[in-house]
């Protein structure tokens, strides 16, 4: 089983490297995030030009906040897209192979259904790693070309130093990445249960958005849902707080309980969803 897993994963990567869907998952979040950076820099330049023309920079203006704030927002945009795209891709991938009949060849000649489930899971994670790496590198490079990064200063006083910003940024990114495996396994479960790839894609995106809305309704209970820690449209992740922190807001502090929950809640949920998919895949026709 182990050797068939590696061979099937290699073959999956071969197809993935030549598939538009995989490229989209890797490139689109970085592209949108970089576009957001460029657009924001243009708007900032235009605002500064306007302020210069009508009286210069006002008192109380925070220096450095634009650079860090825009970069964190770009990361957040990219990670929102990555969360949605990975859940959608995981749902579409296996269901599409079922629709096209490709899965049948694999199951007859090479791998069991459960091995193929693990191959799809591994492939989606590899795509996730690639898309996060491309996002971080391209956004950082793009922002570095546009802005000068340094401490956040207000009226000559340093509100927050560069090293502290980087520490919080790293924590924000890490906490935003932790729930992604749960989002992927949710997509895979939907893929196993769905009748076809369109149904799977729509259901996975629908569930992701529904969880997003739900977490705002159920209050404290939302701490027990992995989706609460995903960067999303109705964002409640720590990265949103980091975005405020680097803009000079001093009231930002992560609750130790929330930190613990963010680190530990998504894992058992990912495993539970995977076990459901593991059970269901042997009971569905392909």
């Amino acid at each position: 089983m182990i050797s068939s897993f590696w061979v099937a994963l290699r073959a999956e990567i071969y197809v993935g490297l030549r598939s538009h869907a995989s490229r989209l998952v890797v490139i689109l979040p970085a592209l949108i995030a970089c576009a957001q950076l460029v657009l924001t820099s243009m708007l900032t330049a235009s605002r500064e030009a306007s302020e210069t023309m009508f009286g210069g920079m006002g008192a109380g203006q925070i220096e450095g906040a634009d650079a860090w704030g825009t970069l964190v927002d770009a990361y957040a945009t990219g990670l929102t897209l990555i969360g949605l795209l990975l859940a959608g891709y995981a749902a579409w991938s296996l269901a599409n192979d079922k629709d096209s009949g490709v899965l049948r060849h694999l199951l007859i000649r090479h791998a069991s259904r459960r091995t193929m489930l693990m191959v799809k899971l591994a492939h989606a994670h590899l795509l996730g790693i690639a898309s996060i790496a491309v996002l971080l590198v391209s956004c950082t490079l793009c922002a570095w070309l546009i802005w000068d990064f340094g401490p956040v200063v207000e009226d000559g006083y340093e509100l927050i130093g560069t090293s502290e910003i980087l520490t919080e940024l790293r924590l924000g990114l890490l906490l935003a990445i932790i729930p992604l495996p749960a989002a992927i396994t949710m997509g895979l479960l939907v893929s196993v249960l769905a009748g076809n790839s369109t149904q799977a894609l729509v259901a996975a995106l629908g569930i992701t958005l529904a969880l997003d809305i739900l977490k705002g309704i159920i209050g404290a209970a939302s701490d027990y849902i992995y989706a609460s820690y995903l960067v999303s449209l109705l964002d409640s992740s720590y990265l949103r707080d980091v975005s405020r922190l680097v803009r000079g807001f001093s009231d930002v502090m992560i609750n130790p309980t929330t930190l613990q929950m963010n680190q530990w809640v998504p894992w058992p949920q990912a495993i539970f969803l995977l076990l459901l998919a593991w059970y269901a895949i042997n009971r569905k026709p392909v």
């Binding site: 068939s4 197809v15 598939s19 096209s100 009949g101 490709v102 899965l103 049948r104 060849h105 199951l107 007859i108 000649r109 090479h110 791998a111 069991s112 091995t115």
Partner: peptide, 17 residues
């Protein structure tokens, strides 16, 4: 699948990428 390619299925709808 444990037959490692000794069995091949060719279906009504060709299952191709």
């Amino acid at each position: 699948w444990q037959c490692h390619g000794a069995v091949v299925g060719i279906f009504d709808t060709p299952g191709l990428h």
